[in-house]
Simulated scan of single mutants.
Amino acid sequence: MKLEKAAAQLEALGNPTRLQLYRILVRAGDDGLAVGSVQEKLDIPSSTLSHHLKRLVDTGLVTQERQATTLICRANYPG
């Protein structure tokens, strides 16, 4: 793993909301969770959730997959 990538991932997880979000997705396992379910668990506005998810996706910690009209988020274990 490159040092820069590891530093970016650790920096992303340094935010309490993103760390909590990542922990929720790790606990969800390989099935992941729909964005709406994550939002209910965190009780934060959708725009805030979108911001934090984007940061985790950009650093490679989370993947997203569209299933019809639902966006499924998963922890990226190899990342």
Rank of each mutant, 00 (worst) to 15 (best):
L13S: 03
R18T: 08
D31E: 13
T59S: 15
Q64K: 15
V35W: 00
D30Q: 12
Q64S: 15
N15M: 02
T48E: 12
A12H: 11
R55V: 15
S47P: 01
P45V: 02
L53I: 11
L25D: 01
S47V: 09
N15Y: 06
D58M: 09
L71T: 14
E40G: 01
G14H: 12
D31A: 10
R66M: 14
D31H: 06
G14K: 10
I72V: 15
L21C: 06
D31S: 11
L49T: 12
E11Y: 12
V38P: 03
L33A: 08
Q39L: 07
G60Y: 05
E65A: 09
V57R: 14
S50A: 15
I24M: 01
L61H: 11
L56Q: 08
L19F: 14
V57S: 07
A12W: 11
E65I: 01
T59Q: 08
G60R: 05
Q64H: 06
H51A: 08
R23F: 00
V38W: 03
I72L: 13
D31N: 05
L42Q: 02
A68K: 15
T63E: 11
L25V: 05
G36S: 13
L25S: 03
S46M: 08
L53Y: 00
L19M: 14
D43R: 09
I44N: 02
E11F: 11
